[in-house]
């Protein structure tokens, strides 16, 4: 494992904690009826978001999913503007038009989260095609879930990307469930990464709860893709610790299974690793954690005090 310097490692930890606190706050705000609509928390999947974004350069691109807050924060988005979007305020990333599932910041190379399962796969493919045609050395990282791997667009996109040797990293967050459906009931092979072979590309399986393992795997795939070797499929095995969306009673899995995965919590794991390896002590960790809580509290304050979008402007901005 290639070890980065201390500040970088602590940066990963900080971002992971910010994502967790953010999602916890969002869940509470939904439960209290302060925010409406729906949301898909990414608690438990922070190592995938942070590890993979750590492997990207600033000229690279990302397509995200309905469970995208973590990806967006890991890419450097402003938690205040994400929270404002959830509140439906004009200061939100989509000015209240998108909500939890639909946000983007092209300047960050973040081409959007997405409410349609699988939609991002083809978008990423097209972005990769543009990179190739424009002769740029950027790669496109495409997040999608185990559920999305059942959409036709998954198969069609991988085929085209492989044929055309596009610089796209298809990163499957296999969190073992698509809503209430366990992956074994929706995917016909044990590992989604096995499907890479059918499209003539490399498939990689990674422990998605190990931030450094994710970072290294994505970095290697990026290196090859950037050098014209075409797309790769990475499957990160992980688990969403929360319900699918707000108000999910989680009848489709056991509390024992959840407890097991709580023990594998990527944040606790990385914290322990950092402490054991002398990168962090408990006092510093506490400081980072309370700092994260402050960032999230300030995001909530910002969202709460922002103004509503103007209904009179609702019909503007449909066309370029």
């Amino acid at each position: 494992m290639k070890k980065a310097n201390r500040a970088t490692l602590i940066g990963y930890y900080r971002t992971m904690v910010v994502i967790r606190r953010f999602e916890e706050a969002v869940e509470q705000l939904f439960a209290r009826g302060v925010i409406r609509g729906t949301t898909h928390p990414s608690s438990g999947q922070e190592a995938v978001a942070v590890g993979s974004c750590a492997a990207l350069g600033k000229n690279d691109y990302i397509t995200s999913t309905h469970r995208g807050h973590g990806h967006f924060i890991a890419r450097g988005a402003d938690p205040r503007r994400i929270m404002a979007e959830l509140f439906g305020k004009s200061s939100g990333y989509s000015h209240g038009r998108g909500g939890s599932q639909i946000m983007a910041d092209f300047r960050l190379g973040f081409l959007g989260s997405n409410g349609i399962t699988g939609s991002g796969l083809a978008i990423a493919t097209g972005a990769g095609l543009a990179m190739k045609l424009q002769g740029r050395r950027s790669v496109v990282l495409c997040f999608f879930g185990d559920g999305a791997a059942s959409q036709g667009t998954f198969h069609e996109s991988l085929n085209m990307a492989s044929l055309w040797k596009l610089p796209v990293i298809y990163l499957c967050e296999n969190n073992l469930y698509a809503m209430s459906s366990p992956v074994a009931e929706t995917v016909s092979v044990p590992h989604i990464a096995q499907r890479a072979e059918a499209y003539g590309m490399k498939g990689v399986i990674v422990d998605g709860n190990d931030v450094l393992a994710v970072r290294d795997a994505v970095a290697q795939s990026c290196f090859r893709a950037r050098n014209g070797n075409g797309p790769e499929l990475i499957e990160c095995k992980t688990y969403r610790l929360s319900g699918h969306s707000r108000g999910d009673p989680r009848i489709y899995r056991t509390r024992e299974e959840e407890a097991l995965w709580h023990q594998r919590d990527p944040i606790l794991r990385f914290r322990t690793w950092l402490i054991d390896n002398g990168f962090l002590d408990k006092a510093e960790a506490k400081k980072i954690e309370s700092g994260a809580a402050r960032i999230v509290a300030s995001a909530v304050r910002f969202a709460r005090t922002s103004s509503d979008p103007d209904p009179d402007a609702m019909c503007r901005g449909l066309f370029a």
Binding site: R36, G88, S94, G96, R97, G99, P309, M314
Partner: peptide, 8 residues
């Protein structure tokens, strides 16, 4: 399109 914001 229909917005997510309650106001809109």
């Amino acid at each position: 399109p229909l917005s997510a914001s309650p106001v809109l």
